[in-house]
Amino acid sequence: MDTSIKKLILAVILQDPELVRGGGAPVFIARDRIEQDRIATYLARITEGVVHDLENGVYILVKH
């Protein structure tokens, strides 16, 4: 278990940039649902995080 900050939003993946304001995590804008899923998958694998669905078209990538 490496020392790391837990429960942190690493990235936000969405199609409509209007849905998220403010900074902290990078926002990835996808053209469609398929691209959104693909970006989320890649980022999850790279960061060892988990993708959660806010059910309004916004995915967040969280380090647990």
């Binding site: 669905d53 059910e55 995915y59």
Partner: peptide
């Protein structure tokens, strides 16, 4: 939806279809 349950116990929210 994206929420995983065992019976009525909520576990987590998972976005990816796969």
């Amino acid at each position: 939806g994206p929420n995983l349950f065992v019976e009525n116990i909520h576990f987590m929210n998972l976005a990816r279809e796969e």
